[in-house]
Computed example of a mutant assay.
Amino acid sequence: MMRPPSGLLTKLAPLGLAIATVVTTPALALEGDAEAPVEVVADQLDLDDSAGTAVYSGDVEIQQGSMQLTGDRVEIQRNAEGQLTRATANGERAYIEQQPSPDDPLVRGWGRTVIYHVAERRVELIDRAELHQGGDTFDGAYLEYFLDRRVVQARSESEGIEDRQRVRMTLQPEN
């Protein structure tokens, strides 16, 4: 991951505690991910503590342990207790990756919009959506992945998307 210029790091340092309370959660993580430091790199941050939102823009990279979320713009929402409730990344190819457990393959997803719902442990990939888990791949206009159940739901159409994007999948045989 790219390191921010020292001036940017200094500006973001006072926000470290706020960011940690927003992003730190065991919901989408290896056991040690929740204790890992949160690293955020962006060109701009608009933080509204009373609303519980942080909006990062400009080549945003967020990493905590094995979880990585990138996009042109990432909005993080948290509840009154400071817990992350939803993270939404937007961009030409917004991206999320996570190692769910040491025995599971890496899960990687792309879309013009990536929404992670923390309490539900659910990821939505919208518009030119693509999901890879091990050798299995799924593509479509809309993909929904339930982490705990390892369930994928795919659709060729999604609200707000003009072009139909047929669902495609490749499943590797089990050994």
Results as ranks from 00 to 15, higher is better:
Gly71Leu: 08
Val167Phe: 01
Pro105Trp: 03
Tyr116Glu: 09
Thr88Ser: 11
Tyr95Pro: 06
Thr85His: 09
Leu15His: 15
Gln98Ser: 04
Arg155Lys: 13
Leu15Tyr: 13
Ile115Gly: 10
His132Cys: 08
Ala27Leu: 11
Glu144Trp: 02
Ala119Tyr: 06
Ala20Gln: 14
Gln133Glu: 05
Glu97Cys: 10
Ser57Pro: 01
Leu69Ser: 07
His132Asp: 13
Pro5Arg: 10
Asp139Trp: 09
Gln133Cys: 02
Glu174Leu: 14
Arg164Met: 01
Arg150Ala: 06
Glu130Asn: 12
Leu8Gln: 13
Leu15Pro: 12
Arg150Pro: 01
Arg168Trp: 05
Ala34Asn: 09
Ala80Ile: 03
Arg149Gln: 15
Met67Asp: 01
Gly16Cys: 03
Arg150Gly: 01
Arg155His: 15
Leu12Arg: 05
Asp139Arg: 15
Val114His: 08
Glu130Thr: 11
Phe138Trp: 15
Leu12Trp: 01
Ala119Met: 03
Gln44Lys: 12
Phe146Gln: 13
Ile161Asp: 01
Thr88Gly: 07
Gly58Gln: 07
Thr170Asp: 05
Leu47Arg: 08
Trp110Asn: 15
Thr10Lys: 13
Glu61Tyr: 12
Val123Phe: 12
Ala119Ser: 09
Asn90Met: 12
Ile62His: 08
Arg155Trp: 08
Ser156Leu: 02
Ala129Thr: 09
Thr137Arg: 08
Val74Ser: 03
Glu31Thr: 00
Val60Trp: 02
Glu92Cys: 03
Ala20Ser: 15
Asp33Glu: 05
Arg168Asp: 08
Val38Tyr: 03
Asp136Arg: 04
Phe138Gly: 07
Leu84Lys: 04
Ala20Leu: 07
Leu17Gln: 10
Gly134Glu: 00
Gly91Trp: 09
Ala29Met: 00
Val107Asp: 04
Ala29Glu: 01
Thr24Ser: 10
Trp110Ser: 09
Thr10Ala: 15
Thr21Asp: 11
Thr88Asn: 11
Pro105Val: 02
Gln165Asp: 02
Leu15Ala: 13
Ser50Gly: 06
Glu144Met: 15
Met169Asp: 08
Val107Pro: 05
Ser57Trp: 03
Trp110Met: 07
Met67Val: 04
Asn175His: 08
Lys11Ile: 13
Asp43Ile: 05
Glu39Pro: 00
His132Gly: 09
Ser6Leu: 01
Arg155Ile: 05
Gly52Thr: 04
Gln99Phe: 00
Val74Tyr: 06
Val74Met: 07
Gln63Thr: 09
Thr24Leu: 04
Ala129Leu: 09
Arg93Gln: 15
Asp148Cys: 02
Leu84Phe: 11
Phe146Trp: 10
Glu61Thr: 07
Asp33Trp: 06
Ala51Arg: 11
Thr10Cys: 02
Gln172Asn: 11
Gln99Trp: 01
Ile19Cys: 02
Phe146Pro: 01
Arg3Glu: 13
Ile62Gly: 03
Ser156Asp: 13
Thr10His: 06
Glu159Phe: 11
Asp46Glu: 13
Leu171Phe: 04
Glu61Trp: 08
Pro14Cys: 08
Glu75Pro: 04
Gln133His: 05
Phe146Asp: 08
Gly82Leu: 14
Gly58Leu: 08
Val114Asn: 06
Ala13Arg: 14
Val41Ser: 12
Pro105Phe: 00
Ala34Pro: 02
Glu174Val: 14
Met67Ile: 03
Val107Phe: 06
Gln99Val: 00
Glu31Val: 00
Phe146Glu: 08
Glu144Arg: 15
Gln153His: 15
Pro102Leu: 11
Tyr142Gln: 05
Arg128Asp: 06
Ala154Pro: 00
Ala141Cys: 12
